[in-house]
Design a protein around this nucleic acid. Sequence first.
DNA 1: CGGCATCCACATGGATACTG
DNA 2: CAGTATCCATGTGGATGCCG
Lengths: 124, 124
Amino acid sequence: MTDQSGAGGAPDELEVWCAGEDWCPVTTTASLICRKWHPVIIHRLLEHGPSGFNELKTDVDGISSKVLSDSLEDLEENQLVVREILSEKPFRVQYSLTEQGRSLEPVIVAMRDWGLEHLTDPTD
Amino acid sequence: MTDQSGAGGAPDELEVWCAGEDWCPVTTTASLICRKWHPVIIHRLLEHGPSGFNELKTDVDGISSKVLSDSLEDLEENQLVVREILSEKPFRVQYSLTEQGRSLEPVIVAMRDWGLEHLTDPTD
DNA sequence: CGGCATCCACATGGATACTG
DNA sequence: CAGTATCCATGTGGATGCCG
């Protein structure tokens, strides 16, 4: 990783490596995972491991076939998810995270933890 | 925080506290910050501290007045950002993060770090 | 089981212009 | 400086039904 901002440090503190630059890692990351169901889908794949379509649909809970299909396609295009055909006869596929996708775990966990600490379950 | 899933552990590991439940912290957190410019706005406020409207607009870089205005309004409604009027004569306002908003730092940092590690600056 | 086809509604974002 | 007012294009999601 080239250090173009000249800050010279590890990327774990907030610095001005973004404002005024053409490229921003926050923006770009957001463009990949900030869609209604994306974080949840990734979370479920982290949690359950490889899943079939309807399995995932059940786990995500509340998503329609179309939207799940669209979302998975988008995640696949961005190489966060891979789709594999397990069998043709009883038609079965399997969705799983790529290395890239799995590496998002800290982000998803951060979101989850924040939610657990700062939001309340309305059904409580 | 009640532990309804019965896992009994700290919330820093992935567990099945979500699938099948009515409420999901990932989904809820996502609904607050997953919009095109929200993560960047929060990031800029973390980085620069309290900012004026045009200051923020410059820092975010690429956003239109309308969208920035809309986004800030949304963040305000969700109590992540506060707007204060500094002066009327030369009209000045100041946007800053609430405690809630500041507490999102781990999430934003996680997104930033992921972007730095896994994405490439197209202008390189 | 694992979708796709359709159609629709609304959310979101963008460009431009104008104002107190 | 800090927005608002329009208007418009597209994104995104949702419901329903059908298919191999």
